[in-house]
């Protein structure tokens, strides 16, 4: 919003002690966004399942329980504010990821994995 006070150069409007709302910070238009991670079974990783808005961290956890585990999907939930996540940008895709394509020695393909070892 533009500055309508006398100091802002819009004429001598006395604002001191008058409830004009000019200096009151606007309420947050929306609750912060949280990303939700659910662990489906014991022994597995938390997996990103979606996002939601919540008033605070604890409330985000309660909402995540309601929105993403309605049908017994999880045994554990993580929530994290979306603005706390640092993400790679699509523009960096080539320098970030392309160079690993031809380095076969990085893949454990030279071992025989026993059938009874899951999740590798």
């Amino acid at each position: 919003m533009s500055n309508l006070s006398a100091e802002g150069g819009h004429g001598a409007v006395p604002l001191a002690g008058v409830p004009t709302g000019v200096d009151v910070p606007a309420p947050e238009p929306e609750w912060p966004l949280y990303e939700v991670f659910v662990r489906g079974k014991r022994g597995l990783n938390h997996v990103h399942v979606g996002s939601l808005h919540a008033a605070d961290d604890r409330m985000a956890l309660l909402h995540a329980r309601d929105v993403y585990t309605r049908r017994n999907e999880g045994v554990s939930i993580w929530v994290v504010r979306a603005d706390a996540i640092t993400a790679s940008s699509p523009d960096e895709k080539d320098p970030m990821f392309a160079p690993s394509g031809d380095k076969v020695y990085r893949h454990p393909t030279f071992y025989d994995i026993p059938d009874n070892v899951p999740h590798i």
Partner: peptide, 16 residues
């Protein structure tokens, strides 16, 4: 399966 939080959804009837 291990990528999906919803794996096993339909085989866990005992939870209800």
């Amino acid at each position: 399966e291990h990528d999906s939080a919803y794996a096993g959804l339909l085989v866990n009837d005992a939870h209800w």
